[in-house]
Computed example of a mutant assay.
Amino acid sequence: MPDAHHLLLFIAAGWLLNLTPGPDVLYIVTNALRSGARAGLVAGLGITAGCFVHVFAAAIGVSALLATSATAFTVLKYIGAAYLLWIGVKILLAKAPAQEPDVAALAAAGKPRELKSIFAGGFLTNVLNPKVALFFLAFVPQFIAPDADNKALAFVLLGVIFNLNSIPVNSGWALAAAWMARSGSVRRGMHWLDKAAACMFIAFGLKLALTDNPSR
């Protein structure tokens, strides 16, 4: 483990990185706008769960495989890109409701099946993105001392800290989006916000599909 100074630096860097908008933030905000704060919080927890998969995979060398194997990287890249495109197209083709949704009512209802689906979507959004795996492989080792006795354990501990620190940031995105959804102007424009989110998911999917393996 790094000393206190480097640990605080690691935490601060993690918060800044989690504040950066990307597919994860978009997924949280979209669900919070459409279904309330609870849906956004669940989306964030699904994304965090997906990050834990990457942390443990990186610790046992799967991320190194993705970094060096063009085939492994390409397969996961296209699966992840297809999933993001599917989310975007699904939202884009969805029909506008005849009546504006009552966000407060949706949040209070908290349908278990819907929340499970949102959690699974966030989980897959993260797990199927090889760039997340390579991020952990590139970022975390910088804070591991060269003379550490057990580098794999240090990697896992730092990865766990990074993921736990992402929860308040993701929760903040969810609560902010849910608060915005309660205002009349946002609710009236919900249909167009959905279309904008759909286009952004499609753009992220295309960007991921066109990403080259960093090892090349």
Rank of each mutant, 00 (worst) to 15 (best):
Pro2Asn: 03
Asp3Trp: 12
Asp3Ser: 14
His5Arg: 11
Leu8Glu: 08
Leu19Gly: 13
Val25Trp: 01
Leu26Ile: 03
Val29Asp: 08
Arg34Gln: 10
Gly36Asp: 10
Gly36Val: 02
Leu41Val: 14
Val42Trp: 05
Ala43Tyr: 01
Thr48Pro: 00
Phe52Val: 08
Phe56Cys: 03
Ile60Leu: 11
Ile60Asp: 02
Ser69Asp: 15
Ala70His: 15
Thr74Arg: 07
Lys77Asn: 12
Ile79Trp: 12
Gly80Leu: 09
Leu93Phe: 02
Ala96Pro: 06
Ala96Lys: 14
Val103Pro: 02
Ala104His: 14
Ala105Ile: 00
Phe119Glu: 06
Phe123Arg: 08
Leu124Gln: 11
Pro130Tyr: 02
Val132Asp: 11
Ala133Leu: 02
Ala133Gly: 13
Leu134His: 05
Phe135Asp: 05
Leu137Met: 11
Leu137Asp: 01
Phe139His: 04
Val140Lys: 00
Pro141Asp: 04
Ile144Asp: 07
Pro146Trp: 04
Ala148Ile: 04
Asn150Lys: 07
Lys151Ile: 00
Ala152Met: 12
Ala154Thr: 04
Phe155Lys: 04
Leu158Val: 04
Asn165Glu: 09
Pro168Asn: 06
Ser171Gln: 03
Gly172Phe: 10
Trp173His: 12
Leu175Ser: 08
Leu175Ala: 06
Ala176Arg: 06
Ala177Lys: 13
Ala181Gln: 05
Gly184Asn: 13
Ser185Val: 13
Val186Lys: 10
Arg187Gln: 07
Arg187Tyr: 01
Arg188Gly: 08
Gly189Ser: 11
Lys195Tyr: 10
Ala196Lys: 12
Ala196Ile: 00
Phe201Lys: 07
Phe201Trp: 01
Thr211Gly: 09
